[in-house]
Design a protein around this nucleic acid. Structure first.
Length: 821
DNA sequence: GCGGATCAC
DNA sequence: TATGGTGATCCGC
């Protein structure tokens, strides 16, 4: 717990401790600051103000640092300075930061903290001038560098590294670059971070601020070590070590609070450990679990982003709060005029107008209208803005803002500013291909200087393991697979056996085997080609396998290949009973057999083994009569793909095949993968290939109840929700495959925990699961010993919900059986 | 499409 | 005395 931020540890006599302000947050140059004193002063100054009251209610105040400062008068060197005025300062130099002064702090508070603080007015032309100077330097290293803002940039130094040939050249390149910035700008210092991607590079650039640099080696273990202990947002205690503030882009005050206090995720390593929890609670998005897991793995962007055109344009002003309507209307007219002016300058017309208000008590409100036609005229804007404002009166307002969005794309570039179009062309022409990797620098200035935050990226793929990991994540982002599982997969890769490698080699020439329906594929040149009759039935052995079981189909053709190889090797008399594909290959040496079997198990567990498709019905029922045995072994699932089940179950239960066939009619591509007892069901849009939902979990014994199907996740993407209004659509199908899988594994019960995070998420989860057919069993609150088992297994508190698998299948049978016929 | 929130800079 | 402005995105409804 950093800096007494937890309200639970606050002493009643020290109320400022609970006043969480941005001013004691991570900030370079704040090491050794008496944070309590800062907090107390800020508290005393703020106490009772409307603003403070608002903050108390929101329990938040967040701003980001902008290191941008310059004073040309040498006599000011070493003196505490801040850019801005008494009401607000933009940034402060390191001298001032020693007093606790920082960006986004009101000047009057800053002056209280540091009575000698020198206020310097903002001077944008000056910043732009120096920014341009630094950019000239960056161009020498990477003509396509990404200018993050005036004071930061990302450079790809791959080529420079390569030219200089030496490994470890990043250090000297960074030094040279910073030195170059220093001389070209006449004295500006900056900091740099070098790493494999931009996210890491930014963090690295913070480490040795000011006027320093840090190079993170581009190998997986270095990255993992570095990132795993990295706090999600706050800096480390200055006494702990010399490492300065670090921050992950995209995680602000609010997100930090959720991760830290609700989910007990404090470091990036925790993010990976609690990946399934994140997956359950956040939908997939840049702010969602994929993002968190990527961060946890130290992954970030390395490409040059597309030039994004603006989506809105706005103008807003703060003034002394007033309820005077005439005054407000006149402010509104001014802002409408400003906005109209900006739109004309940019050659934009738009049809959605949004009015933003900040009340005297600092609440933010917005009201929007979409107009019939595109406009940029101040009269139109004012007319509609007035209506919107009128509806809010009477109210005391301290800020009015107007924003226009939904541009008319057709005329967007009819009259663009020269600068804009030039930038556009330059960026477009210079966009590079195949940027696999970056090293990056972050530069920052120190005292008495325009502080810089410039970054540089490079490509130097010395270590393939991390690159491989990164590739995987790109795949994840495309396929929505959880990174941590893919990681496991990656770690297992070296253990792949020779026999498997052999199969894979053969596979390469026939990678389309599993791709499409009745397409004939030659598994082996001189052998009858494998054909999926009617799209699902193997012409060689008659097994039915839905097209969506892509990997299983591959395995299946591997089987036929292996069988063929074996036949060739040992003659026509050899067994045709496929017990294990590796036994068929028969390449293991006797003395390593045991070891290899273990490995086989692990390796096989990624997919459903071929032999399970051939499991005889009596074997199946034998197993199901002996659940105790399964408990120990946690065997792979028995897939029952045939509509006419051999298990002797009632005809009314939908088989896996029923579910899959039915889903096909809904353009849904379902797939199940297993990893030991773990399983994952993914549903993809058959047309676009994008994932629309998934379920994950494990088949495990549960305290005297035999095997249960433990569901970690049922998740639908946002896209799904738009596409399919009914949760019972995709969600039901994904859930059904999981449930049927559980049934086939011998589970009687399915269970899950609707994690309690916030009221909002929790009630949503419970509602969703109830609609699917689960019932609330108990609240796991951690208050009783009996909760311990649940808490250990689920890793949290919430509502335990169970469902009888048989009942679920019965309940759902109509849906699936109906659509079959 | 609207309104609230969060985030970066 | 006094706590910014611009733009983006996401989520729920």
């Amino acid at each position: 717990m950093d800096e007494g931020e937890s309200s639970s540890t606050n002493s009643p006599s020290r109320p400022w401790e609970s006043y969480n302000t941005v001013f004691t947050n991570a900030k370079a140059g704040m090491e050794g600051v008496d944070k309590e004193k800062v907090q107390r002063i800020v508290y005393e100054m703020s106490k009772g103000s409307k603003y403070f009251q608002n903050e108390e209610r929101k329990e938040a105040l967040m701003k980001q640092e902008i290191e941008l400062m310059r004073d040309s008068n040498p006599s000011l060197k070493g003196k505490p300075m801040a850019v801005g005025g008494l009401s607000m300062i933009s940034t402060a130099n390191y001298e001032a930061r020693k007093f606790g002064v920082r960006a986004a702090m009101p000047g009057f508070i800053a002056r209280k903290l540091c009575p000698d603080l020198i206020f310097v007015p903002v001077d944008f032309p000056k910043y732009t001038h120096y920014s341009d100077l630094t950019r000239k330097v960056f161009k020498n290293y990477d003509p396509n560098f990404i200018a993050g803002s005036l004071d930061e940039a990302y450079l790809d130094i791959t080529e420079v590294c390569r030219e200089r040939g030496l490994s470890g050249g990043e250090v000297s390149i960074a030094e040279e670059l910073r030195s170059s910035v220093h001389s070209e700008t006449g004295g500006l210092t900056c900091s740099a971070g070098v790493a494999a991607n931009r996210l890491l590079a930014k963090v690295c650039s913070d480490i040795n601020k000011p006027n320093g640099q840090f190079v993170l080696q581009n190998d997986r273990s270095s990255v993992m070590t570095f990132i795993s202990s990295l706090p999600i947002r706050k800096h480390r205690d200055a006494t702990e070590n010399s490492i300065g503030p670090r921050r992950i882009g995209g995680i602000g005050k609010v997100t930090e609070h959720i991760l830290k206090d609700a989910l007990e995720i404090k470091t990036c390593g925790d993010m990976v450990l609690k990946g399934s929890l994140l997956y359950a609670l956040f939908t997939q998005s840049s702010a969602g679990s994929n993002f968190f897991l990527s961060v946890g793995l130290g992954l970030g962007k390395t490409d040059t982003p597309e030039v994004r055109s603006r989506k809105s344009i706005s103008s807003e002003r703060t003034f002394a709060a007033t309820g005077d309507e005439r005054l407000l209307y006149s402010k509104l007219a001014e802002i409408a005029e400003m906005l109209s002016h900006d739109m004309k300058k940019e050659g934009l017309t738009a049809r959605t107008l949004t009015l933003k208000l900040k009340t005297a008590s600092f609440e933010i409100r917005s009201r929007a209208v979409s107009l019939q036609r595109y406009t940029c005229s101040s009269e139109d804007i004012l007319k509609h803005a007035t209506k919107l404002l009128k509806a809010e009166l009477p109210v005391s307002i301290r800020l009015i803002g107007l924003r226009m969005s939904q541009f008319n794309e057709e005329i967007r570039h009819s009259d663009p500013s020269q600068g804009t179009i030039t930038k556009f062309i330059v960026q477009k022409d210079s966009s590079r291909q195949n940027l696999d990797d970056n090293d990056s620098f972050d530069l920052e200035a120190s005292t008495n200087c325009l502080s810089n935050d410039e970054r540089l990226s490079s490509y130097a793929s010395h270590d393939t393991s991390y690159d491989q990991l990164k590739e995987d994540v790109v795949k994840y982002e495309e396929q929505s697979v959880t990174p941590e599982q893919e990681c496991k997969k990656e770690e297992e890769r070296p253990q792949v056996l020779e026999g498997d490698a052999l199969l894979r080699k053969h596979k390469e020439s026939k990678s389309e085997t599993s791709a499409q329906n009745t397409e004939a594929v030659s598994v082996f040149p001189q052998m009858e080609p494998l054909l999926w009759v009617n799209g699902y039935k193997c012409n060689l052995c008659g097994i039915e396998l839905p097209p969506s079981f892509v990997e299983e189909r591959q395995e299946h053709s591997d089987f036929h290949l292996a069988q063929r190889l074996q036949n060739e090797e040992s003659g026509p008399s050899s067994s045709t009973t496929p017990t294990s594909k590796r036994r068929i290959l028969g390449k293991e040496k006797a003395n390593s057999k045991q070891k290899k079997q273990k490995l086989n198990q692990k390796d096989d567990s990624k997919h459903i083994p071929i032999h399970t498709f051939f499991t005889k019905s009596n074997q199946n029922s034998d197993e199901r009569r002996n659940p105790e045995e399964m408990k120990m072994a946690l065997p792979p699932p028995r897939l029952n793909l045939s509509p006419s089940s051999s298990l002797g179950e009632p005809r009314s239960l939908p088989s896996m095949s029923d579910i899959l066939t039915s889903s096909k009619a809904r353009n849904l591509d379902l797939k199940i993968q297993t990893l030991g007892p773990f399983f994952r069901v993914t549903g993809k849009n058959a047309d676009t290939g994008s994932e629309v939902g998934r379920a994950e979990g494990v088949v495990r014994p549960w305290f005297g109840r035999g095997l249960v199907l433990h569901l970690d996740t049922i998740k639908l993407t946002k896209e799904t929700m738009v596409m399919d209004k009914s949760l019972l659509g995709v969600g039901l199908y994904v859930g059904a495959v999981a449930i049927r899988h559980g049934y086939d594994c011998g589970c009687r019960t399915a269970q899950l925990l609707a994690i309690y995070d916030s009221d909002l998420y929790h009630s949503k989860l419970v509602r969703f699961y109830r609609r699917i057919g689960f019932e609330e069993v108990k609240e796991v609150s951690g208050s009783s010993i009996g909760d311990m088992a649940d808490m250990l297994v689920w890793g949290g508190v919430g509502t335990r919900m169970d469902a009888n698998i048989h009942h679920l299948l019965v309940k759902w049978s109509k849906v699936f059986l109906k659509s079959v016929s």
